[in-house]
Amino acid sequence: MPATKTTIELRGCKIGLMRAGEGAPMLYLHGAAGAGAWLPFMERLSRHFDLIVPEHPGFGVSDTPPWLGSVGDLAYFYLDFIKAFGLRDLHLMGSSLGGWTALEIAIRSTHGLKTLTVNCPVGLRIPDVPVADMFLWSPEERARNLFHDRALADQMLAVPPTEAEADVLMKNNYATARLAWQPRFFNPDLEKWLHRVDVPTHIVWGREDRLVPVAYAHAFAGLIPSARVTIIPDCGHMPHIEKTDEFVRAAAAFCQERRP
């Protein structure tokens, strides 16, 4: 089913929004690369869920409001969003920067959340396991380091972005720096409060993630009370793109599990 693409305004901030599907609501929070297009994994998820994909303030077609300075700001924005849309029994899902945002939402309030799925999230720091310095990667290094499969990276690199796409990539990179340059991709306070995440939580990771090493999957699992970990082999930092089948199957099954 094709997604409807709209812009909405919340608290004076216009953001892009894609939505498709029926069933239980699922809110997907994108990573640093943004969410401009309706991707195959979204299409697949929309067969099971009413999938809502906003473009974060600062990214893509969305405004960059003056209040936007941290992932915590983004979390409060989405708490308002969940309330404004009247979302209940919500499956909250986020990738990378969006996964961090989902966790920041959940430590503030899990009201209305049914499950939480985080896909290679950042947000935590293990002192002796560095997250790679994405800001120093050239566009080619980005493609090569984000995907495990060289052929997939080649495929990405074979199609250079149009000028409009390049503009969006630059804007998204600026927004990512705004939120995560310092402290670099983590919030020193997050780990203190992850015990507050009291909904079933699914941590999905690409085993060969070269941006955020898989050791972080286990670190998060140790801090979140009811966390389950799924490691996807032969997969980099973008399981939803690189291993769409495995990702969607595992993610949907977790959300649809019958729980007492």
């Binding site: 990667w137 050239s138 630059m170 600026y174 990512t176 720096a177 705004r178």
Partner: peptide, 16 residues
């Protein structure tokens, strides 16, 4: 390299 000389935000997007 370019990414080191001009990190995001160092210049306005139009200047960049």
């Amino acid at each position: 390299p370019f990414e080191m000389l001009l990190p995001p935000g160092y210049l306005s997007m139009s200047s960049m």
